[in-house]
Design a protein around this nucleic acid. Structure first.
Length: 107
DNA sequence: CTGTTGACGCTGG
DNA sequence: ACCAGCGCCAACA
């Protein structure tokens, strides 16, 4: 499968991986990007820079109604990137799974 | 067509 | 450990 861009296929793959994240475990965008098979035609180093943002973009496009644990996806700093109410909701969802946050919001 | 923005990450101060 | 800047490409106004 070759996707040179954040095509629908790329998004679906991201969601697929997110779906596979077990309960009580959090992953980062970059981590997911690493798990995704890079397009053979693209230089890995280049892909490295690309992916994190595309992963994030994919999250934004997450279809509601499916069982996507998008809440388990946070940034490499171990913190929630979403501002405002959405971020607060994400945190409460994670806490409900048994994930602990320190005072600074890190896991 | 140009400019801005973005669920990020890395490096440097 | 925290903050600021840069890179990178697509989508959007």
């Amino acid at each position: 499968m070759m996707w040179n861009a954040p095509s629908d296929d790329f998004n679906e793959t991201v969601w697929l991986i997110v779906k596979q994240i077990p309960e009580g475990i959090v992953s980062s965008y970059g981590q997911i990007a690493t798990m995704i098979p890079p397009p053979p035609q693209m230089v890995p180093d280049e892909y490295k820079s690309l992916s994190p943002r595309w992963v994030g973009a994919a999250m934004r496009n997450v279809p509601s109604g499916q069982n996507i644990p998008w809440q388990r996806v946070i940034n490499s700093q171990g913190k929630i990137s979403l501002p405002g109410a959405t971020g607060a909701k994400q945190r409460s969802l994670l806490e409900a799974e048994g994930i602990e946050f320190d005072e600074k919001g890190k896991v």
